[in-house]
Every structure is written in C-alpha cells, then in structure tokens.
Design a protein around this nucleic acid. Structure first.
Length: 824
RNA sequence: GCCGGGGUGGCGAAAUGGCAGACGCAGAGGACUUAAAAUCCUCUGGAGCGCAAGCUCCGUGCGGGUUCGAGUCCCGCCCCCGGCACCA
C-alpha cells in the first residue's frame, strides 16, 4: 500500500483507534497456554479538570508495558477504573452546586476520552467505578468480613471541628490551626464515637512480608518507619498518696531506670485529672486546652521549645525508692505506648531539654563504652546534651540488682528479668502505627453497613441486604451536628433491625476512601461478577499484580491498607497470596514548565488534548517516554515534543523510501545485520527495565544509521523489526508502517522481534590505551584478541611512546576488549 | 529536626569502577527554493596551540580519600526536591 508523502498524525490516529475498538484488540484473553501479566496503575480520582500531560507520565509507560508484554507472549490484564468517592468530589459538588452522581460519571467519561485520545490500550469492558452500588456493595461486604473477624471496633476518636462551618475538618483543611474557610476561627478537637480497623494486629506481618516483594527500597523503608516497631519494656511506678494508682509506661531503655528523675504524662492522660493537686489544677486545665488545639505535627516539632506543667503529684521509682515529680507535656502523645514516659534526661535528648528548662535533676547512668569522655558521677550531664548511645552502666544499683559495668544490651536484659521477678513490668513490643480510623462524617462515600437497634445494639447488615444504598440527597450540606449529611435523610436513617425487626437507625458515617482502593485490584479480575467481590478462579489466575505503578505519595497509607486487606482475605481463605503487588514502581512527578505543580489555579496546566492536536498522540507519547528516566521527576518542556514529532516524521520518510523501492529483502552487510540485531537486543532489555528514554535513543540511533543506507543495503529485516518495535511506543504510526510493508493484520498481534546473540555480537571493539590514567590512544581491534596482541599494539602506538618518554612500563592493567592501562 | 532521593553542556539527559556529554531540544553555518515552510548536510563543554590533519590542558555541587583508573566507591561539607515521626 503506498504511503502519503507526509506524516500526518491527525489523519491516521483516529482511524486506528476506531479500528482497534472494532477489532476488540485489547479485550483480555484467557489463553491458558500463555503466562499471565497483570499491569496496573493506581486508579485515579476523575477530577473535573481532566488529565494533564503530567498524569500521562504514569499511563503511557504502563500502556507501553502492557502492549509490549502482549507482543512478548503474555496474556495481559490492563484495565482502568475510577476512585470516585471522597472529599474532592464532595467539595467540587458543594462548590458547583452539582450532584457528584451527575458530575463523577461525566468527569470519568472525559478521562476515558483523553486516555483513548493518546492511544492507551485498556480493556474498557472491565471499567469500574467505586461509587456505583455494584462496586460499593462489595466494599461493604469487606467491612462485614472485617467486622465478623473482630477487626472492626468502635472507639472514641477526636476530629478537627470548625465552630463556624459546624462540620468536621480533614487534617488538610486545617491551616495554621484555623479552618481553611474561616481563617479567623481556631479549629478545635471534637470527640466522636467512630469505627476503627485493627491494622495494628497485622503490624509484624506487614513488616515481615516486605522482605518478599520487589518494591523500591525507599518505599519499604517508609513503611517500616511508619509501622515503627520498637522493643523495650513496659514498667509501672506507683503514684505516691494514691493507693492502687500507678503510671504505666513504655521505654526502649529500661537500663536507664536508675537515672529517672521525673515522669511525663500526655495532657490527655486519664490519670491527670485524678492526681493533679488543687494548686496545680487550673494551670493543668489551661495547658490541656492549649495542647488540644495543636496539630500533631506542631506538637511533635523539634524546633519548638519544650513546655509542660507539674501535676503536683509524685511517683515512686521502685528500683531505687526515689520520689519523682509527675509532669504533663505535649511532647508525650496519648496515642503512642501508654501515653506516659519516664524521664531519663541523662540518656534522652528530649528529656534532657525538658529537665534543663524546668530545673529537674539530670542523673547520668550511662558512660561511653570505650571509656572516653566518661562523665563525672553526679547530676551534671556531659557536653550539654544527653548521651543517648549504648554504652556502659554507672550509678545503677540497689541491694539486689547491680548494673554497673554492664553493657547497655546486657543491662536491658537484666532490668527486664528483675522487673518480671518483682512484678514491676515485662518486656514489650510497641508500634508507632495506630489503628485505622475509617469513619468519615461525609456524604459522598460508601455507607457503613451497620444498624443501631435499641434492643440488639450494634447489628451488622446481613450480606443478603447489601448494598446499603447511598440515598440520592439534594441537600448534602454538612448536618451541623458533626454527624454526616446522611443524618438529615430520615428515609435512610430510619430502618428496621435486621435481627428483631423493630425500629432502628442506620450508621450515618461513610467509609474512608482508602477502603475502596484496598481491594479494587481484585475487582478487575472479574468486574461484573455479582455473587462475590471477585470470582475465585479469576483471582487465582490474575493476581497478584505483576507490575503496580503509581506516585510515591501513596508510599504509606494506600499501600499499607491494601496490604492489610489482602492479608485479611488470605486469613479468610479467599485468596492464596499474601501480598497484592509483586512489583511496585514509582513514576517521577512531572512539574509544570515553571517548576511548580500543574494546577488550574496557577494556569500552568498543559493538556493532552492540546498536545495531540498540535503534534499527534504518538509524538506526545514518545516525549513522555523520552523526556527523562521514568522514575525521576522533571519539568514539562513542550519543545521536546517537537523533537519526537520530527523523529516520527523521519521514520515515515525512511519507510516510504524503503517501501517505494519495493521493500527489498536486500543484501545487508554483516555490520548492518549486526546493528539490526543489537538494536532489538538493547530495546528489549531497556523496555523490560522500564528505561524507555534510552530504548528510544537506541531506536533513534538506528534510524540515523538506516537513513544513510540504500533500501537494498538496509534490507527488509531491519525495517520490519523496526516497525514492530515501534508498536508499543507509537502504536498508530506502527500500524501504518506495518500496512505499508504489505501486511494486512494488526502490528499489535505480531510477536516481539527475536534477536540472535551470535549476530548481535560486536566483531570489532575499541580498546582504550591509557598512560598513567590518561587516554592516549584508541585501538580498533577484533573482539576477543589476546592480551599479548593488544598490549603489543598499545606499546607500539606512537602517541603512547611519546607519553612514555622512554620510561619503561612499571605495570600494565589489561581488561579484555576494553582497555590497556600502562603505568610508567 | 529526622528519614529518603538528587546536583553532569544554554536546556532534557547518557555512561556493569574503564573513551564524560550517547540520543534529543535550542543555537550557528550550508544545500534545496523566486522566497518561506518543510526536509537534508556540517558544527556546537571551556581554555590554549597550530596554515592544517591535529595536539595539549581543564571539566560531572565543594573539600579530602581509596584505585593503574572515580560522574560512579568511602569520609566531611553546601544546595535543591519529596516524606514525616521529639515514638519514649
């Protein structure tokens, strides 16, 4: 078929997109003779702004992998869906006065149109939307599963609250301690009964199973730090004058127990009210109120000076009988450990600062193990800071226990043993991670399938009655009471108890959006199955995900929650894998040309629509791939698209010249054949390793080479394999080239080209000759030449002789086919 | 403050411890054209030497080190980006 004189993407791209749809080219096939490959990108929230070229830096590379794997012989599952519940949609709805039920599908349709516009190949028959009853029915089902397994419970949690909005605020809606809409109104905390998932029960497994998955190390590290496992001891000191009352606390350094000079309780600690003396009461109350106004990040800031208030009460350290003051301070959090600590200022920098500020004693009980700079006995800490490292105990003994001279690790064991024998405490593991608060006082979310019955209490909605449908409210403004807008829908709230049939009320909170995204990867395996969240056989076949791609901003929460749910499913016998994502990669963020985040308000958004119109979808795709390493962030630069568009034009012209010459088998030289095979080898390797930028550079290089040859010299193999390799990268142009080469089937059904290692091997190599570390000559020699031969050639070089200047070589380093390094 | 990732031409970037700057953008010169666009060819890190082919020196944030050889490994700094957690 003859080719047009010029490459005009606007003529060919819509044609092939329609053709692929018609041929159902990207429908998932389940050919059991082929291995499966499940590639997935984190499903997006379909915003009204549509996709930017920044988003495509995730979708285009995944599309390339999906297309490549299909050609390489895999059954590929690659589908797309919408994470459509949540705060952004609800805010957008309140702002524009349009119901999310109407806007979400419209926005999603726009995303879909844009993805099709750039030629991304998804199996759209598997499209899912987390805000549809067909989907969230099963999110509710999972809630019931967790509830049934004792992993969902109710407890008090505090939430930010704005007195003017009369509504709950998300963390991100609190700016400088005030409401985002009312910058003059201090946000306060409101206590509410809410639902939690017991993710802490999975803490150790979430840590241990990181070992077996291929994820970026920084992400694994962030997860480990988030879980924050630490080993230590839980001890208890009795409160003086309050028989039966004690301060229980966790410490990682029980060895420093002889150096405790005070205790600190979190301001919220229940013991505070009981033990505070009358004289201190008002100061305490004032401090507690102030502490509750701060965000956690503020409270935990290291740059801020430590503050606290004395309760007036004392505790007795049972290890040495000392009476020590009990304080409260905001640097101790109720949510970690037991909400209390022992103050060992000689060995903990925070305690050191606190003791310094309030004139508390600073005993020293640990000395450096090497004996250097051993602090003087007594109360003065050395060098103006705590000695927090492990060392050797000093000043640490009572009549039964003598730690002096013991190394820290041994002293820890000794204290734990002693504490156990005297019922003072026990070794404990503590975690930084807290349980997952899943209640949201919002309208646009998945209703929690729970009913409150005056007779039967908390009753889960039976599975057969799912879904609990989100009512179609016209007024989803905040309720003003702190409850979700659903509380304003009596037809929703008022129901009958599933157990006794009597009048009852529905739970009005909705589920955290992270619940929807904790299982969606399973839904794609059987998206229309209506008897369970997924069809077992399909899940067994497709899961786990072979390549999961998304931004590093989801390093912790989403990925941790999805991992936890998967483990719950495993425990329930629903799936046979423990980890949902075998391989994870993070694409680099694309900033706008001005280095800022692309956003409509900044007016720096570049849309795929504009780029496709100007340069074509293939050119845009190629620039997304070529602009830099896939995992590195970079700034958008439109001028680069000119380059990839020009490259595609050159491909077109080269192919046209070849086809017009009759597409000859030709008689390529060994070198030309070698280059063709080596190109396949390199491109294959680089795509496998997600190094799309260098894969493309290799193809550009090869094109430059082919253009210097006549069609006869280049030969058919070079051009055919070239067109096939272009298929995942520039899918529209590749179809056109393939057809021009005389084929009648889609290039996307072709097998990935094979190369011969034998033929790809270099015949001639450049051996670099160095004298004293500087390059002085280059030898063009046959690959595999002997060390003797190459060394002799190197020494014979005129330039080498000149730089040796008559001196005899002292040493010669030889690297086969690479280098002769002469040291004179 | 802590943790993680970076710093290479005018720009985006290449480079298993072995030729620094592949590939592209921008720029300069030339060919084609009445002209322009498009396309094609040549040059393009800095300094110096040479009529010339070419040659020499310097150069991967800064300062040290290891090595025959360092953009790459080690130690100490500076700057930028991301994340967050004073976690007892």
């Amino acid at each position: 078929m003859p080719m047009d004189e010029r490459y005009e993407p606007s003529k060919i791209e819509p044609y092939w997109q329609a053709e692929w749809d018609r041929a159902e080219l990207y429908d998932t096939r389940e050919d059991r003779a082929r291995p499966k490959f499940y590639v997935l990108e984190m499903f997006p929230y379909p915003s009204g702004d549509g996709l930017s070229v920044g988003h495509l830096h995730n979708y285009v590379p995944c599309d390339v992998i999906g297309r490549y794997k299909r050609m390489a012989g895999y059954n590929v599952l690659h589908a797309m869906g919408w994470d459509a519940f949540g705060l952004p949609a609800e805010n957008d709805a309140l702002l524009k006065g349009r119901h999310p039920k109407e806007t979400v599908p419209r926005y999603a349709a726009n995303f879909k149109r844009q993805l099709k516009l750039v030629g991304c190949a998804y199996d759209w028959k598997r499209e899912i939307n987390s805000s549809t009853p067909e989907y969230y029915r099963w999110t509710q089902w999972f809630f019931l599963l967790l509830h049934q397994r004792g992993l969902a419970y109710r407890a008090t949690g505090s939430q930010w609250w704005c007195e003017k909005c009369r509504t709950i605020l998300a963390n991100e809606q609190v700016v400088n301690g005030c409401c985002w809409r009312h910058t003059d109104t201090q946000a306060t905390k409101k206590d509410l009964e809410q639902w939690f998932f017991k993710i802490t029960e999975y803490a150790d497994r979430l840590l241990d199973d990181l070992e077996g998955i291929d994820w970026p190390e920084p992400i694994k590290l962030m997860q480990r730090n988030w879980v924050g496992r630490s080993e230590g001891a839980e001890l208890a000191f009795p409160v003086v004058g309050h028989p039966g009352k004690e301060v229980r606390f966790f410490t990682t350094r029980p060895d420093t127990v002889f150096g405790v000079s005070f205790m600190v309780l979190a301001p919220e600690h229940p013991l505070v009210a009981e033990i505070a003396t009358a004289a201190q009461r008002s100061a305490i109350e004032e401090y507690v109120t102030a502490a509750r106004r701060q965000s956690e990040i503020e409270r935990l800031s290291t740059v801020k000076e430590k503050t606290g208030v004395f309760t007036g009460a004392h505790a007795r350290n049972p290890f040495n009988g000392k009476q020590i003051p009990i304080w409260i301070a905001d640097y101790v959090l109720m949510g970690y450990g037991t909400g209390a600590i022992m103050g060992a200022p000689g060995e903990d920098q925070r305690d050191f600062e606190f003791a310094g500020k309030y004139g508390l004693e600073i005993p020293v009980v640990t000395a450096p193990a090497d004996g250097s700079a051993a602090p003087a006995d007594g109360s003065a800490a050395p060098a103006g800071r705590a000695f927090a490292d492990y060392g050797v105990n000093i000043n640490s003994s009572n009549s039964e226990l003598d730690l002096n001279g013991m190394k820290t690790a041994d002293a820890i064991r000794a204290v734990c043993k002693y504490a156990g024998e005297h019922e003072l405490g026990r070794p404990t593991v503590s975690y930084r991670m807290r349980d997952w608060l899943i209640s949201r006082q919002r309208y646009w979310g998945c209703p929690i399938p729970i009913v409150y019955c005056p007779r039967d209490g908390i009753v889960p909605v039976p599975e057969a009655q799912l879904p609990v449908v989100l009512p179609d409210m016209t007024n989803y403004q905040p309720s003003g009471t702190g409850r979700s807008p659903l509380a304003n829908a009596p037809e929703f709230v008022n129901t009958t108890c599933p157990r006794c049939g009597g009048p009852a009320q529905r739970e009005t909170d909705t589920l955290d959006g992270f619940a929807c995204s904790s299982w969606y990867f399973l839904r794609f395996a059987s998206p229309h199955y209506d008897r369970a969240p997924f069809e077992r056989a399909m899940a067994d076949y497709w899961l786990p995900v072979d390549l999961y791609v998304g931004g590093a901003e989801h390093a912790v929460m989403h990925l941790l929650y999805a991992r936890m749910w998967t483990k719950v499913m495993f425990d329930a016998g629903l799936v046979k894998f423990k980890e949902p994502f075998a391989v994870l990669r993070n694409q680099g963020m694309i900033w706008a040309a001005d280095g800022q985040k692309m956003s409509k308000s900044k007016g720096n958004v570049v849309t795929p629509d504009a780029m496709v119109e100007k340069y074509g979808a293939d050119a845009l795709r190629l620039w997304e791939l070529f602009m830099g390493p896939f995992e590195e962030p970079t700034n958008w630069n439109e001028e680069g698209v000119v380059g990839t568009a020009r490259y595609l034009s050159r491909v077109w012209n080269a192919m046209r010249r070849f086809v017009e010459a009759g597409g000859p088998a030709g008689n390529p030289t060994a070198e030309t054949t070698r280059r063709a095979h080596k190109t396949i080898q390199t491109v294959t390797d680089h795509i496998e390793r997600l190094r799309f930028n260098t894969a493309l550079a290799t193809l550009m290089d090869q094109l430059n080479y082919l253009m210097k040859l006549s069609p006869e010299q280049a030969g058919r193999f070079a051009f055919e394999s070239y067109a096939v390799m272009l298929a995942p990268l520039a899918p529209h142009l590749a179809e056109e080239l393939w057809r021009a080469l005389g084929h009648t089937t889609s290039v996307h059904l072709e097998p990935w080209p094979k190369f011969s290692k034998e033929l790809a091997r270099d015949e001639m190599v450049t051996v670099v000759v160095q004298v004293n570390g500087k390059v002085r000559d280059r030898l063009q020699v046959a690959a595999g030449a002997t060390a003797e031969a190459n060394t002799a050639l190197a020494l014979a070089s005129e330039s080498v002789q000149r730089h040796l200047d008559g001196k005899p070589p002292k040493k010669i380093v030889y690297v086969a086919d690479k280098l002769v390094s002469i040291v004179a």
